[in-house]
Design a binder for these strands. Structure first.
Length: 170
DNA sequence: GCCACCGGTGGC
DNA sequence: GCCACCGGTGGC
């Protein structure tokens, strides 16, 4: 996923084809969430779209012209009426997950979800804890803009090679 | 007074 | 060492 400097949230979503490894843009967040929730059992491929094949050029390149963040596969899709927000810290150190409930309340952890459901029994048959995941994507070090100052100069963070690609929000 | 944002840490 | 979680607070 690529983040807009303005909104601090993803402004595009892309999935990588399991066969040709090209990246294809997914038009909406909800479609992206649909693909993501079953990604391991049902990996995505270009021909999932009747009008697209691996012979077609990719929609977007994985490079530093955008800030890419690789999402975890198989996150539960937010139930209807609930939106999952993924917010980038201004220093690109990490991301935060918030769930926006139908009444506008934002939840920051599973514990808060639990409390919310207790406090609002009317939602209890509609939503369950399993619908929520606060797992955050990793930010590949090369995606951190060059003009961002490293956080604590005294502490060196070690770079990590991250395997995968698979799913990504841009 | 709220809430978006950030820093710190406990537990794994 | 990582990351899910939460307390604090500055700016509105």
């Amino acid at each position: 996923m690529e983040k807009s400097r303005k909104t601090n949230t993803a402004d595009a979503y892309a999935v990588q084809c399991g066969k040709c490894f090209k990246w294809r843009l997914i038009p909406t967040k909800e479609q992206f969430e649909d693909i993501r929730q079953n990604f391991i059992d049902d990996p995505w491929a270009c021909d999932k779209n009747p009008n697209v094949s691996c012979d077609d050029p990719g929609d977007i390149e994985y490079d530093t012209r955008n800030v890419w963040v690789i999402d975890k596969p198989n996150l539960p899709k937010p139930p209807s009426g609930v939106e999952r927000l993924l917010i980038m810290r201004s220093d690109y150190s990490k991301m935060d997950v918030n769930y926006v409930m139908p009444n506008g309340k934002k939840l920051r952890s599973s514990v808060e979800v639990e409390k919310f459901l207790e406090a609002h029994p009317e939602y209890k048959d509609k939503y369950s804890l399993a619908d929520f995941s606060f797992t955050t994507p990793k930010i590949p070090p090369e995606m951190i803009p060059k003009d961002i100052e490293p956080k604590v100069p005294s502490v060196r963070k070690k770079q990590k090679t991250k395997d995968s690609q698979s799913i990504s929000e841009v």
